[in-house]
């Protein structure tokens, strides 16, 4: 017994190292990006505040460009709104006249499913295998997990954790996150994920051979995940080849959003998310 203690004392550093290393490595292995402990989260108070202070300083120089981008986006949205109004009210009203807008909004058959809000990016990375963003809005501002994050109508990521004043977003540039996506031209869908190599390209998988694919095809969201509306732009196909020994294409998608230059992002909340989830959970018990 005495010898055992002597041995442990003699090699206590080695034992300590093995113990701590096992502990940290098991954290790496069991780590799940969807159910992370809030402590290890860039949305926690200390790191969130530090990122916020620093980014409000560095982003001053970028706001002029952001304003221009937003003005452009507004113009596009205004045009789309006009078209929608014309379509939905053909024959009933003179849709070009804006005073009819409140009457349409009151109409109970037209209910907005998605609610949009904005937030400022206080931290962002593109150089890791598992990239996250931190936003300066949290529970206090009505941000909830599973809200979609977009920039200029292009997919950026998904809210994973929310603290009182901050939220963290799993980026599309995170090899642990997959999203369903389809080719806009023919509606065939596959699953989109990142291989961790190039921050400008993601991979569209599970697209069978018989599907006609072309370079330059636009890839958009399917709306199946219920976090994003259908038809948000993800990117364009830049390269595709037939994988060896598989029945699927290897498709490279050039991202539309510039992940290195995100300042203001939009958040999308699906108001019917809970209803959809409840309904879908019924199927899991069925078989």
């Amino acid at each position: 017994m005495k010898n055992l203690f002597k041995l442990i004392y003699r090699y206590h550093v080695v034992f300590l190292f093995i113990l701590l290393e096992t502990l940290t490595l098991s954290m790496v292995v069991t780590y799940n990006s969807y159910q992370r402990a809030t402590f290890f989260d860039s949305g926690n108070f200390i790191s969130g505040t530090l990122f916020e202070k620093f980014s409000s300083f560095t982003q001053i120089f970028e706001f002029k460009q952001v304003n221009l981008k937003m003005a452009e986006e507004n113009a596009v949205l205004r045009t789309a709104l006009q078209e929608m109004l014309l379509k939905s009210n053909r024959g009933n009203y003179k849709a070009s006249d804006s005073i009819y807008l409140p009457r349409i909004a009151k109409d109970s058959s037209v209910k907005a499913v998605y609610r949009f809000t904005t937030a400022r990016v206080v931290n962002n990375s593109v150089n890791q295998q598992h990239n996250f963003l931190t936003l300066n809005k949290g529970r206090h501002d009505g941000i909830k997990p599973d809200m979609g994050v977009i920039a200029n109508g292009q997919v950026v990521g998904l809210v994973t954790n929310v603290s009182e004043n901050f939220s963290t977003v799993i980026s599309l540039l995170n090899s642990k996150w997959k999203i369903s996506a389809k080719i806009k031209r023919n509606d065939y869908f596959g699953s989109l994920s990142w291989d961790g190599k190039d921050y400008r390209r993601v991979q569209l998988n599970e697209m069978p051979y018989h599907v006609p694919v072309q370079n330059g095809d636009t890839v958009v969201t399917t709306g199946y995940s219920s976090s994003f509306p259908e038809g948000l732009i993800i990117g364009t196909i830049s390269d595709f080849s037939i994988g060896t020994g598989s029945n699927f294409y290897k498709i490279e998608v050039m991202l539309a959003a510039d992940f290195k230059n995100l300042v203001i992002v939009g958040l999308v909340e699906n108001k019917q998310m809970n209803e959809i989830k409840q309904l879908e959970s019924l199927n899991k018990y069925g078989n």
Partner: peptide
């Protein structure tokens, strides 16, 4: 904590 990678840097 800052990079959301529990255990990796540690």
């Amino acid at each position: 904590i800052f990079t959301n990678t529990p255990g990796v840097h540690a």
